[in-house]
Design a protein around this nucleic acid. Sequence first.
RNA 1: GCGAAAGUGGCGGAAUUGGCAGACGCACCAGACUUAGGAUCUGGCGGGUAAAACCGUGGGGGUUCGAGUCCCCCCUUUCGCACCA
Length: 853
Amino acid sequence: METEKIIVNQGEQRELRYDPRQIEEKWHARWQADPTLYAAEPHSSKRKKYYVLEMLPYPSGALHMGHVRNYSIGDALARYMWMQGYNVLHPMGWDAFGLPAENAAIKNKVPPKQWTLSNIAHMKSQMQRLGFAYDWSREVATCLPEYYRWNQWFFLKLYEKGLAYRKKSKVNWCPECATVLANEQVVSGCCWRHEETKVEQRELEQWFVRTTQYAEELLADIEKLEGWPEKVRTMQRNWIGRSEGALVDFALDGIDGPAGSKITVFTTRIDTIFGATSIQLAPEHPLVTDFIANDPHLHAKVEELVEEQRRAKESGDIGSIEKHGVFTGHYAVNPFNQEKVPIWVANYILMDYGTGAIMSVPAHDERDYEFAQKYGIEIRVVILPRRTEEPPAAGQKEEPVLPYTDKESLLINSGEFNGLSNQEAIEKMTAFAEQHGFGKKTVTFRLKDWGISRQRYWGTPIPMVHCAQCGVVPVPEDQLPVVLPENVDITLQGSSPLARMPEFVNVSCPKCGGPARRETDTMDTFVDSSWYFYRYTNPQLTDRPLDTPTVNYWFPIDQYIGGVEHAILHLIYSRFWTKFMRDIGIVKNDEPVVRLFTQGMVIKDGAKMSKNKGNVVSPDDMVARFGADSTRAYALFAAPPDRDLDWQEAGVEGVHRFLSRVYRFVMRNADVAGKSSGNALAADAGSVRAIQRKLHQTIRRVTDDFQGRWHFNTCIAAIMELVNALYGVEDEIAAGRFPTEVLADAQRSLVLLLAPFAPYLAAELWEVLGEKSNLLRQPWPQYDPALAKEDEIEYAIQLNGKLRSRIAVPAETPESTVQERALADEKVKASMDGKQVVKVIVIPGKLVNIVVK
RNA sequence: GCGAAAGUGGCGGAAUUGGCAGACGCACCAGACUUAGGAUCUGGCGGGUAAAACCGUGGGGGUUCGAGUCCCCCCUUUCGCACCA
């Protein structure tokens, strides 16, 4: 094509240069003008439903490439499912409460609400410019009272059911700011604003949600989540951390200890209790407070241990610090054998797991072993690996400690329990402890109740009132929402801004009418995101959070897509919330999400894109230079979506070049009627057949990937191959020798295949092909297996596994014939060099391996 | 320390079940068209060789007619968990 311009219909002149800006702005304007374009049909729809959801973003100011990737994956899927005829729900919203808005307010003197809403407006326009097919009529912003009033409503329900409660708990406190810090604001033990100032721990009354109530079910139902990545399921299992064991009481040895006291330990290995040669307490164990009261020396030592443990936790290397401890001078009595064992305080015992106290069995626990070695505590073997082995001589401990939990294990030195296996012993000894009232079977979880109080402004006010007469009183439902005041002074003044507003704080008690004080804590933003996807089904409801029949139609979510960083907290809280909603009868599903997809990170120059590293690529910049289609298609082409993606600008150019080729081809050949006078002139039936075959193979590959592994990179590569093949026959097309209907069909299918990946270009070319319909309502192309089939198959001929020749035979050639042809091949004969054929292996459709000797 | 994933040309990545390693794209090289081209089109492109042979999927062993793919040992990277009793 020498000329840059070409005459098409009615002599209209069109540039052959692909200009994404012009095309995308044209369609953007049209799509903006039709808000119903991507709207889901009501739940009375006859179509099968499909709910595809991407994790809602925090409105930080601008989209980053991670967002673009996430939404490009979801949008491709949504568009594909639309074309498959589903009633697709594809909504978007904003996780709009949170700390950055307050920081921005302090820094720039902009009210958090204003800052947040203007960010939302900007990011929404970015999303729209990128062409994501969202149903904006369902948009949700969690910072608006229409939304957060339902957080408050849920909170009241939780409170009603005893699942929300108050408890003293530690918070991070910066003495310089005189304020509470979120965990993320603590940088290696110091305040993020005052790098020299150590963060202190303060005890405050805070609100908790009893997630542990559902611990068993949250764990058990992980088994049902077959559409979730195994990695996420494992992470959740570990996070919940269920552990079966026993609580055993050790009485304090009389005279020295506080009267009647006992120490309850948690153990999973009650079978080793005869080997317990000390008790170890966490430094913060309440009993330790009693012990140190009259012992300044011990007091000082314990303080050290507490400090050491705190530091290790902060720096993250708890687990590798050297074990230390101090003997308290007190003893406890092992209830199984009445033996006196010393009580120690040790830095490797955690107060927030189990009971904060353990029985130490150095012979069968590595940590206890290490400790006992260091302090010369007796190491007593009470279990052996096999029934045949002799007990080792007393005190000898050459081998590293082994837990011996197999069936062949054998208890020794354990009184009446000698001779039992580990499993039998656990059962019998637990029962024994229960009978004698000094122990019981128990299950502990690593999962903790969820502390939702934040001493912050920009969040959902907790709808509670503190009355001097009535105590804690919930705000009545009909008085919701408790609106977050806006004329607020966000400066650092040592208390939550809300607590400094008398007009907010001073209320009358809903119960007695007397003067009362409003709760000034706000909710953790994970509350907002725990149920937002239900609200999408009916966001405009004003009298209840959701409409149950509508939710029952849409739920569970068919496909949820987001970053793996939410694998634990967000996804556990969401699962908890769903179970709670089910139990108060407003939804019927047990789990919110059927299939979960976690996409990889966007990397540049070997590191995750971040402002700190200065390797951020701006989506706006990419859209301006290459267009939304190229940017999106590249995000899908550069790597499979579950892997990390290395952003290379040259790659974007490559995709842009590919889309240009598509554009030029269709522009040149859209007007097929003038290109060919029909089949009669087709000179080369082979090339026609080849195009058909390639087309149907491509449809098959792309369709299979949407149904299966989502390797959109190979989908796009397949479409590239198709386009390359079409370029290969362009001379024949130009010469009028290519059948009209084959060409027309190929072009239509090509545009349809491209629609999920490059929606703007697809829409434009669909119109160029003379189509008026909405592409999303256009059926996805079907492949014809007969047309996709190869007519001729090339066999690789190997000699002892090494490639020696190739032969082409018609498809369906019997194996015996293939074998004959292979043995008759000249190159094969030459390489055989007179050797004997031992065996011939024919793999149908692939290769022949001739084994010679 | 424990667990998971990964390691393939100069680069991003293909190779769905053991069957022709390197699809597709980038970069690069050559040619065509051009006053020109950072446009477009055509061809080439793992190493090696004149051409073959031969060597090549982190390293070492093994199973097999045949291994990137399966098994064993080791190395590296990334992620998650980390004194959980």
